[in-house]
Design a protein around this nucleic acid. Structure first.
Lengths: 143, 143
DNA sequence: TATTGTTATACTCTATAACTATA
DNA sequence: TATAGTTATAGAGTATAACAATA
């Protein structure tokens, strides 16, 4: 399913517009990932490896359990998209790095995930600024 | 993990704002669902059952395979949140209906999913209108 | 024959608990 | 003893292929 998050009978027009946008974004992300043989979670992790990351950092950023990250990274590693290297400063810790193959595949995925780019392209510079302001204000302290 | 969809190194401020918003929305949805013992997919299906739906309609709306819907609905049914009824007009088809228990639980979930409501509440009426206009325009033909 | 839905299967995501290695 | 990460396990989401029931 493209979008686990379903409509919540949004009661206002603004809430409905937010939902529709999130829904479309999530679906587009999943489709782009699968076109490259990636699950959304794999694409997500790969995207965070522009610089090396510890397992614990990934778990923290993704808001999930470390054991989960272990599995996702193991699958990436088995396909030569990422590697685990022991951190010499603290041999308990591992640095996860993207392989060249992983970087190349991720670049293709990014190119293919046209949603946000296309969405922005429908707005002129002033409208984009307005949207940024409104989205940030709407988020407020929700983040 | 709250949000399978990760950041895609958004190259513009607008793209980053879109991502941050989607990310926060998805995480909030998942947390609200899990507070009521629901997976995001279960909450999503439950939300679509304000009126009876055929399996094929649910699969179409969710953009996933029918066999997937069979499983989700089976889990809802096993917890007395939904029921499958043979459609007398076409006995191949089933009408999925929410039980009273399912409706009640979903109402609680909805109440608890405060994200969109809170986001909208940070904007005044004019700003909400602006946001709707911009989001719809950004979506353009992407939907 | 075509359609609706299910079953069997396999893979991925996810968390919890118990574990290993290192600090 | 505390921390980083892994392993074992189990439940859920997902798709494909084969199937049953009905049209």
């Amino acid at each position: 399913m493209a979008v686990p998050s379903g409509p919540v009978s949004p009661s206002t027009e603004a809430e409905r517009a937010m939902f529709d946008f999130v829904d479309a974004y999530d679906r587009a992300y999943e489709i782009a990932a699968s076109r490259h043989g990636l699950s959304p979670a794999q694409a997500c992790v790969l995207g965070r490896l522009s610089a090396p990351r510890a397992m614990s950092e990934l778990a923290e950023e993704l808001g999930c359990d470390a054991s989960n990250v272990t599995q996702i990274v193991a699958r990436l590693e088995s396909r030569d998209l990422a590697r685990r290297q022991v951190n010499p400063q603290d041999r308990r810790s591992r640095q996860i790095v993207r392989t060249d193959h992983g970087s190349s595949l991720y670049a293709q995925f990014e190119e293919s995930f046209a949603f946000a780019r296309a969405a922005a392209s429908h707005l002129d510079a002033g409208e984009q600024e307005q949207l940024v302001t409104l989205l940030r204000k709407a988020l407020g302290s929700l983040t």
